[in-house]
């Protein structure tokens, strides 16, 4: 888990000072108070990212590079949600960036709100986090007693593949990965007796 400092980190990358000022104003209009790093050229941006900085958001204007911006940035790995502001025709990169062209204030503000506040589309599938199923408890019991996947499969008459799936689900539901940790859980919850463990 990242230990974040309180403010979100935003990089504003645009060649012209006035442009950067404008972007900062829009950000404050939508009510965000981030730590802003201003960058005036693409090479600076690259070296900044290479140093291991991981901002939360990057907003980049297409004036940042004199050559075609698209050629320049497709090779860069952006570590976070990135917005590219530019002309029409930049829909090409939509898969990787939020590419927008600016028409009027209302649109801009909406787009920025969406950019900062809407979660990204790829959300994790929600799993059932409730207690373990009976079968999972059977598997947990054997895992806690130190049996191997093969032994568990034989004992419960299921395939080794199924054992692995059960173990994965158990770990996800309990948040415990090691066998020692699972054993502690199993004893705490009366799934096995402490005496059984050392046998």
């Amino acid at each position: 888990m990242e230990n974040k400092t309180s403010k979100i980190q935003v990089i504003i990358a645009a060649k012209h000072f006035l442009y950067r000022l404008g972007l900062k104003t829009i950000i404050s209009v939508i009510g965000i108070d981030p730590e802003i790093t201003e960058i005036g050229s693409l090479s600076d941006l690259k070296s900044f990212l290479n140093k291991g900085y991981k901002p939360d958001f990057i907003i980049m204007n297409n004036d940042i590079s004199d050559e075609s911006i698209l050629d320049q940035i497709t090779a860069i790995e952006f570590p976070c949600r990135t917005m590219l502001i530019g002309d029409k025709g930049q829909e090409l990169v939509k898969g990787r960036f939020e590419a927008i062209c600016l028409e009027n204030q209302k649109e801009i503000v909406e787009k920025f709100q969406e950019f900062f506040f809407e979660p990204e589309s790829k959300q994790e599938p929600s799993t059932d986090k409730s207690l373990l199923s009976e079968r999972e408890i059977d598997v947990l019991k054997t895992v806690a007693l130190g049996l191997s996947n093969k032994e568990i499969a034989d004992k419960l008459c299921i395939s080794a593949h199924t054992v692995i799936t059960h173990r994965k689900n158990i770990t996800e539901k309990l948040g415990i990965k090691t066998i020692a940790g699972l054993t502690v859980y199993a004893i705490m919850n009366g799934i096995i007796n402490p005496e059984e463990v050392n046998q």
């Binding site: 309990l174 948040g175 415990i176 990965k177 090691t178 020692a180 940790g181 502690v184 859980y185 705490m188 919850n189």
Partner: peptide, 18 residues
């Protein structure tokens, strides 16, 4: 990694299961 995993287990035992 192994050390980190064990510590994380211990935290979860306390947070979720105590």
């Amino acid at each position: 990694e192994n050390m980190e995993v064990k510590l994380s287990d211990l935290k979860n035992l306390i947070i979720r299961h105590l």
